[in-house]
Structures are given as C-alpha cells and as structure tokens.
Write a protein that binds this DNA or RNA. Structure first.
Length: 784
DNA sequence: ACGGCTTAGACC
DNA sequence: TGGTCTAAG
C-alpha cells in the first residue's frame, strides 16, 4: 500500500538507473560471442526448453517475450541463443546476478545516496552533487559535452528531427533556465558520467531517468531503452502524466490500479485530477487517498534510502500442480536444500558485510482436496534465527510442522489414515530478515564464525550429529500416512535444539516414563496412539527419554544457545576471544548492549563481577593470543567482482555509528545487577513439571513475579516458537519466569548443575564438559 | 496445472 | 510483533 509523504523542501535531483535486460548481459559478459546476438536467459531447461526470464533487445525484435518457453522462442527466432540460469541444489541459483548487481551498485553509489531497489535497479539522490556542480562548473560554462551525454532525451522538448544533439546541448546549457532545470541538467551530466563508468568497469549498459522525485525518475528510465537516459523537466510533468495509463505507475499495476479503473473509471493519471483529495481519501483511506491525489500531480516525497544491501535473504521453490510435495520426507528434503542455500548466503553476508540476520521465516503454500481456495492459507511461521546450517534446517522443519499442524487443524484434518494425505505443498520458501550490522569491535572475528566448520555446514556430518532426528524423520517419511507419528516427531524434535547435547543424551541410557508422551500433549493433539507403528513407537521411547529432562534442557538451552550460537566451533571461540580482548583493551569495558546476544551476556557478567572480583585478565589474554594463530591473516574475503562493505558503504558507517550510539545509550540505561540473570521468558508448564522436584523448588524459590519486566513478552527460547499457536490452544501453556543464579565462579555454575538428579546430571555433564571452558573464558574476559 | 524466484513495504 | 497481503522486477 502506498503511503503519502510530504515533498521535501527544495528541489531534488533523483535518478533511477535500470540495467538493460540484466540477466542477458551477465550471460553475454561471460560468453562474449553472444553479444549482439538474439539471446535469452532460461531457467529449468528440462521442460519445453525452460522459462524465459530475460530477453535481449535483438531477440525482442523477433517477438520473443518474457514468459515464453524456450521452445516457443526458438519458433519465432530459430537462431536465438539460450543461456541457462545456474542450478544448485536442484533449484535456480541467482547468485551470479546478485553479485553482478553489487558491482553496479558499488559504482553508482559514488556520487550520492544510493538505494538498491532490486537486483538490477537503483535510485540515486544526486541533489548535493548537482548543487555542487552548479556552484562550481555550471553546464552553461561547459564547452565540450560528451557525445553520449548529448544522446540524452529531454521529455517535452520537441526535437524536430534534424539536430537532436544540438537541442540537448542547448537545453543543458540554457543560461536562462530556472534553478530546477539547471539542477536537472547537472543531474543529466552526472548520471551520464556514472553510466559510462558502469560500462567501463562492468561492461554492462543501463538506462536512467532523471527527475525531481523517484516516481518520475522511474517513469523516465523506462522511456528510452536500452542504454539511454531521459530527463523530466518539471514543465513536462503535466503532459507526461495526462495521458499516462494509470497502470503504468508504480504501485498501481495491481489491484489498486484496477480499482481505480473499475470503481472510479479512471484510466489515465490525468483523469485522477478531477477527484478531490477528500473523495480519494474516502474511497481509499487517508494515506492512499492523499498519495493518489499527489501522484496525479507528479508529487512524491519518497526519499531515496541509503541502502546498498538487501534487507532480507530468501530461498524458495515452487512445486506446481502434480509436482506438489505430499510427504513430510520430501518437504524435509527440499527445505534442507533451501536452508543450505540460505545459510550459504547468510554466511557470505556475514563475511562480506558483517551483518547478522535475526529472524528466520518459513512460507509455504499448500492445498487440501476439500477446499479449492485452500492454497493461500498456509500460515507463515518465524522464529529467532540461529546460525549454522544444521540449526537453520532444524528450526525450519519445526516451523513447517507447526504451520502444517495449524493448517490442517483449520480443516479439522486430525487423523489421516488414508494412503494419500489430503494435502500437498505447492511452494516452500525460507527467508532471513532483521539483518543488522554487527558492532565494529566484533567485526574482525565474525567472519570466522559458524559455517566455515564442516561440523556445521556439511550435510554428511550433519546426519551424524542429529541422530534421533534422522531416525524419526525417516520413520515418518516411510509412513507418511500416519500423521500422528509426524506430530509426535514435531512435538519432540524441538528438544533437539542443541545437537551436541542431544547426541550426548541419546548415547547414554535414558529413563523412559510411560506417561511422558501423554503429559506432553496439549488437548488439541488427541491423535489415536493405536496408529503408531512399531518404528514410531521405538522412536517414541527414544524420544521420551529425551523428554524427561527437557525441563532442564529448556532451562539451560538458553544459555547453551547463547554460547552455541556464537561459539560452537573452536575457531569461532578463539577469534572471538582475540577480538574481545582487543576490544576490552581498547575500551576497558564492554558497554554494547542489545546488539548481539553475546554482548548482553557479557554485560551482565561484567556488572555482576565488577565490584566483587578483581581477577586479572592477563592469563586469559595471554591464552587468547596464543590461541589465535598469527599465521592466519584477517584479510578481506572479497573478490574483485563483489565489492566489500568497506568499498560500498557510506551508508554503513552511518548505520554503524547510529547503532553504536544507541547501544551505548542502552548500556547506560541498563540497571546494574548483582545477579547473573538468565531471563527465560516462557516455559512450558508441562516442561516445568518434568523437572526434578528439587529443581522445581529452586525455580519456584527464585521466581520473582513482581520483578517481571513489562507483562508477558514473547520468549527468546527457541522452543516457544514451535509450540501450538494460540488459536489451537484451549488454555495458555506458557508462563513467564525469571531465574536468577548467583554463582561466584563458573565452576559453581557447573557444580550446581551436577548436584541435580541423574538425568539432569547427565544433561549437565554434557553441558558442563562442552561449555565449562567457554564459560570460564567468558567469565574472565568479561572482567578484562 | 505452470511463470519462477526474490525482495520490500504496509496494515493490524 | 508476527503474520498476511500487495506489488514489482
């Protein structure tokens, strides 16, 4: 939905730069013999020659269109060259295009604020550059103007054929022009320069529009393609919009545009002028109404956002019609493929841009046979994003199953015994959002974090780690008709948020309690247990052994996750320590709060110990230095093709300083605490009941309801996100508790854990062994 | 039973 | 805030 914004004060110079059939150009650069030939880019070559996603201008002359199949294109243009989109993991891989887009952006960002609008489009705010130019070397004083620049188009300038270039020259150099036009003229020169630079450095051509706002610039960029540019003087705006079909306007290509046509009988932007602002607001609401009134007059206050990098990453695939996925096993397979791609991209983002994504979202489309309208209703689900391919896969699968349960629940499909499930999945996509730049102090180490380690990213290894998961999923995969098994799996698989831990759990002998399964079921999940297969029952036993300690697990999982998230490989730990000690030396005190979880973690440790413990960090530092091998250099991973953040960003320095300052503010606001606090926002009551009595007692004793900050907050515990949603729960399963531990040393934390019952003990032993060293590091560093 | 795959933004 | 919907390339 468009939203109205006031036009800023002075006249701006805005450019929209659009790459010409970008994918084709990328292909042609790679295979130069394709240049000048009718060419198209196809994906999925297997069926009818693949689908065209980009068509060269030479091919367009033959009537080749996007949305043709490769075979059709061959019919109308037999000599057409088809370039295939690279495939990876069974799906199209667009990374070469994304990277090529980054090359272009890094050049276009040189002259002003730059917004990456899509893979092949950017907006530029050239106001400052144009004003600077006007102040120094106004176009009228130029005696030579580049040939290419003279090929610019000036909207509304009636070039009477004969001497177009002279007309352009005249317009650019008019001394009597008003300031608005002079600024635009400067914009024309700057954009022309930029486009030539793009061509020189990337071999790509592009087209551009130059105007006083984004909307007009965007309109103009498409008016003369390819490899040309068009400027829109204010005096031409009215004429341009008057006859412009309403659907050509950005934001009006869809339902809103149709509504204007059908409900108001408006077919051109000009026809919008007859409606009062009030009338439009009445029809479309205050925001959209005002926006419409404005755009009819060529007014648009949208700012060019300084953003060179995408705000999210996603990987998806469709499974149309007969190819719909019909079993959990196949869904899992594809989700894994998507997750691998996503994880790879997240890690490059971390490497290249020092950014971390915080939210993982799963989207799917599904159908049930009973409802032809059903395919849009599959709920999307999201949860906090944990780095590491295995974790992303695991969380994604859980999100999917939560979604599926809700989806099927809404159709009252509770028990599916028939051979064919009543559902099918027609599309899957996994995305990562809420991406923020990490504080500069920790940048140097972040690139060594999860993903480099095979234990995390290699699929083979992954299978080794999540033993029980694999076992159960293959069982349910073999028996897709027995959904209760899947649900069972869904209920329990969330207990495997910590692979290493689970491994530990399952190797050792657990004690299984018969009633655990029942206890864990919410009233909504009354699946006939008689339909469980033997395999499933075996899995169940295995699973319940895990469940019995799940309370303790969820208790500690938070801690584990915090550690694991950023320390789950030695290299990460080493470099973190290295970075952290540097940072500590620099600032004496880590003040950043609310950035990465680990820093928050630090903060509380630091606070708690600053007065009572004056332990010197020397040892730690020495050891940290020893650990961080000097032979490894910290050189940038960027290739010449893909610009690094440093190369790209003005934006980022702004972002980062902004982030830092706001964080230090937060740091000051943060109340000083004696305790080493872990806030577990929500815990499943049934999980709580599973805790050994003494632990329950401890937890109760440390409950501080009166201290709860801000009512019930959504939990940070991963498990929360996979529990049944409100709509499928009769009563709230969750309540919020705050647990305080006041250990004097890290050993005390571990010791305290070992005092628990055998099950918990087993759990904590694993935890202890794995993490005591890490806790100790943290403990010491926090005081550094 | 087909256009596939991505990203962004607004609303509630 | 998470989830849904719209839009665009």
């Amino acid at each position: 939905m468009p939203v109205a914004r006031a036009e800023s004060s002075g006249p701006r110079v805005i450019a929209h730069v659009d790459m010409d059939c970008f994918y084709v150009q990328v292909g042609q650069r790679k295979q130069p013999h394709l240049r000048g030939q009718p060419t198209a880019v196809v994906q999925y070559n297997s069926w009818k020659g693949g689908a065209l996603i980009a068509v060269s201008y030479e091919a367009r002359k033959y009537g080749v269109k996007r949305s043709m199949r490769g075979d059709e294109a061959k019919k109308v243009c037999p000599q057409i060259q088809l370039v295939r989109v690279p495939m990876a993991r069974g799906k199209a891989d667009l990374s070469i295009y994304r990277n090529a887009g980054s090359e272009v952006v890094s050049i276009l960002a040189r002259k002003g604020r730059c917004e990456r609008a899509s893979i092949d489009e950017v907006y530029l705010d050239l106001t400052d550059a144009a004003e600077a130019m006007l102040a120094e070397t106004s176009p009228e004083s130029l005696d030579t103007i580049d040939e290419e620049t003279l090929k610019s188009h000036i909207l509304g300038l009636n070039g009477d054929g004969s001497d177009l270039k002279q007309n352009v020259r005249k317009w650019l150099c008019r001394s009597n022009a008003d300031r608005c036009d002079k600024l635009l003229a400067c914009g024309v020169l700057i954009v022309s320069e930029l486009r030539m630079q793009v061509l020189k450095e990337t071999e790509f051509t592009c087209s551009a529009g130059i105007a006083h706002n984004k909307m007009l610039a965007k309109l103009a960029s498409g008016m003369n393609k390819p490899a040309q540019q068009t400027v829109v003087p204010i005096t031409s705006v009215k004429g341009l919009l008057e006859s412009l079909p309403i659907k050509k306007m950005k934001q009006l290509g869809g339902k809103l545009g149709s509504s204007l046509q059908n409900d108001l009988g408006v077919n051109t932007v000009g026809e919008l002028l007859q409606f009062s602002e009030e009338k439009l607001q009445e029809c479309y609401g205050i925001n959209t109404g005002t926006w419409l009134w404005n755009i009819a007059r060529g007014i648009s206050g949208d700012e060019v956002e300084g953003r060179l990098l995408p705000k999210s990453h996603g990987s998806g695939k469709t499974f149309p019609g007969p190819r719909a996925l019909r079993s959990i096993a196949s869904v899992e397979h594809w989700l894994n493929q998507l997750c691998e791609e996503l994880s790879e991209r997240l890690h490059s983002d971390l490497d290249q841009n020092k950014r971390i994504a915080h939210t993982l979202t799963l989207h799917a489309r599904a159908f049930v046979f009973s409802d032809s309208e059903s395919d849009r209703k599959f709920p999307s689900k999201s949860c906090p994003l944990r780095y590491g391919t295995a974790k992303i896969k695991e969380d994604t699968l859980n999100l999917f199953q939560a979604g599926l349960r809700e989806y099927l629940g809404s159709y009252r499909i509770k028990s599916l015994r028939s051979r064919h499930n009543g559902w099918g999945i027609t599309s899957l996509s996994v995305s990562a959002s809420k991406i923020v730049a990490i504080p500069s102090g920790t940048c140097s180490i972040m690139k060594y974090f999860p993903g480099k380690d095979q234990s995390c990213s290699s699929p083979e290894h992954l299978n080794d780690i999540i033993v029980p998961e694999t076992a159960v999923s293959s069982a349910s995969g073999l028996h897709p008709t027995e959904l209760p098994v899947d649900y069972q799996k869904e209920e329990t698989s969330i207990r495997h948020a910590v692979p290493s831990l689970d491994q530990q759990e399952n190797k050792s002998e657990g004690y299984a309690r018969e009633d655990t399964y029942q206890t864990m079921q919410s009233p909504e999940h009354e699946y006939p247990s008689c339909s469980l297969s033997k395999t499933a029952n075996d899995s169940l036993v295995q699973e319940t052994s895990t469940l019995s300690s799940s309370g303790a697990e969820s208790f500690f999982k938070l801690i584990q996750n915090e550690l694991d998230r950023e320390f789950h490989e030695d290299a990460g730990l080493q470099y973190f320590i290295h970075g952290a000690t540097q940072e500590a030396q620099k600032r004496k005190k880590v003040k950043d709060k609310g950035s990465t979880s680990i820093l928050r973690f630090f903060q509380s440790c630091n606070n708690s110990s600053s007065s009572s413990h004056k332990q010197e960090p020397d040892e730690t530092i020495a050891e940290a230095k020893a650990l961080s091998s000097p032979s490894l250099n910290f050189k940038s991973v960027s290739s010449s093709r893909v610009p690094t953040e440093a190369e790209l960003q003005k934006e980022n320095t702004v972002t980062q300083t902004g982030t830092c300052s706001s964080m230090s503010n937060l740091g000051q606001v943060e109340p000083r605490r004696e305790a080493w606090d872990y806030s577990i926002d929500e815990i499943d009551t049934t999980v709580f009941n599973e805790l050994p009595p003494e632990i329950q007692e401890e937890v109760r004793a440390s409950l501080r309801p009166q201290k709860r900050p801000n009512i019930i907050k959504r939990g940070s515990s991963i498990t929360h996100y996979f529990l049944p949603s409100k709509s499928t729960c009769n009563e709230p399963l969750l309540f919020e508790i705050v647990i305080s531990l006041k250990p004097s040393t890290p050993n005390a934390v571990a010791a305290r854990c070992s005092r628990s019952t055998p099950t918990v003990n087993k759990f904590t032993q694993g935890w202890q062994e794995q993490n005591l060293a890490q806790i100790t590091w943290l403990w010491n560093i926090a005081r550094g």
